[in-house]
Design a protein around this nucleic acid. Structure first.
Lengths: 252, 252
DNA sequence: CGGCTTGTTCTTCATCGTAGAAAAGGTTAG
DNA sequence: CTAACCTTTTCTACGATGAAGAACAAGCCG
């Protein structure tokens, strides 16, 4: 994960983050942008106007904004990642309805796991929305689940980017994930948080992931088997709902 | 030409403009960025740090910055547009030395002509630097020259993007340009400004353009033939200097 | 090694970016 | 058709933040 620059410029950060979101999600409304960035709608509107002015965005007749020429002529709502979101989110919602813990949808992008969408549970204490954030894949449980789902060549390529000393432990860890079929984190990387992740196989050997996250204080180990079952069912349901995609734009 | 938004955000504009410049030019130093944007080096450095943070730029070991993953993995200093600049600018300078009027280098990007570089003449009243700006190709003379140099398929594809009513007049106009070998604008689209443009054929059927621009008050029609000759010689010189390029990243 | 150029860090202050309010636009249900 | 509601766009005021100058650090060359 990159550190925020020491002398960050907040307005620029919002604009660039918004451009990234457009690439990720294909199209959005002003109000979507405002809530995703945590700014007012008038600020979001101004940022989008700047993106349009400099060809990073275009506005459709229906007022939605999509990526512009500088961001590559991703032809808007046909973005496969957008398709993954659209397909997966109802399943995530059902998972959360059954388990009543927050669920995340992630994709593997290079060596990083990117949170694409979070469905929050209804409990007062819950894990919040992390969409848009990235972590090194080997840090999060869903990230590890995704890595474990790669073929050997893909995994070797990723491991080659790590330090020598990090590889063997990660290989062992991923072997365990492969045997278990899931990855469990009980407060080890993010204190006060317990997460379980499984991978979702997509077309073209691309890998996404779904994780459940709960406050560590609420975690009960005897719930694991049930949760894994629910996660696996959810992941399988997403896989079956995904129609064969063309070239997928996220990932390696 | 797009109008600057009514409620522009200057810091965001600088950042996005800088990202565009990275795409256009392949790589640059902090001090280059500062002078291109007209800001202090400390501001340029902060903007570049933000671009790096959000994956719009990467920094090489030699401290230069180049486009990052979000802007497409243009592999830095091998950018053909950078090559075109490098090759054409000395010829442009010689043209300006001979004619003592400002010259522009343009590329055709989709339906737009983008000013890549301007060499200004030494006269007190002169046409200034327009690099970085874009106009619809059918508006500028060099743009028309570039369009007229396209093959029929390429031209049809561009015409298909125009309104029905705009196509036939543009076709007639381009036919004249093809017969003349140049495009002349005497104050018709930009008042007080006269321009002549010719096309430069590049590899892979990509088209660039060179134009001379002069204040309309100084324009004398009997100079046209001489200028056309100089322009054509300059364009041919650039064409011959361009080594066969790999895939060209600007254009359609 | 010193000088010069360039990149990076830090600080201060005034101006500009944000957000709230208002206006404008679009959609839907009764 | 109209009112209600939602969303987008426009406008304004103010305090927080972005720009720039200075200082420091790094790299290169004679």
């Amino acid at each position: 994960m990159k550190n925020k620059p020491q002398y960050a410029i907040e307005s620029v950060d919002n604009a660039l983050h918004l451009a990234q979101l457009l690439v990720l999600e294909g199209s959005m409304r002003v109000s979507d942008a405002a809530s995703r960035l945590g700014v007012s709608v008038s600020t979001a509107h101004r940022l989008l106007a700047m993106l349009v002015y400099r060809d990073f965005a275009e506005q459709d007749p229906d007022k939605r904004y999509r990526p512009g020429p500088v961001l590559g002529s991703a032809t808007s709502s046909d973005l496969p990642l957008s398709e993954l979101r659209h397909t997966a989110i109802p399943h995530l919602q059902r998972l959360v309805d059954r388990v009543n813990e927050s669920a995340n949808l992630l994709v593997l992008t290079g060596t990083e796991a990117r949170f694409v969408h979070t469905v929050e549970c209804t409990q007062l204490l819950r894990v919040g929305d992390r969409s848009g954030k990235t972590l090194p894949a080997y840090v999060t449980r869903a990230g590890k689940a995704m890595l474990s789902a790669l073929d050997d060549d893909g995994l070797d390529a990723i491991l080659a980017e790590l330090d020598e000393g990090e590889r063997a432990p990660l290989r062992r860890s991923l072997r365990a994930v492969r045997q278990n079929g899931f990855a469990l984190n009980n407060g080890q990387t993010e204190t006060e948080l317990t997460a379980i992740g499984v991978s979702v196989r997509c077309a073209n050997d691309r890998v996404a992931g779904i994780s459940l996250a709960t406050p560590a204080a609420r975690f009960e180990r005897d719930k694991v088997a049930g949760w894994v079952q629910e996660l696996a069912a959810c992941a399988r349901a997403v896989e079956e709902s995904l129609v064969p995609l063309g070239d997928v734009v996220w990932g390696r």
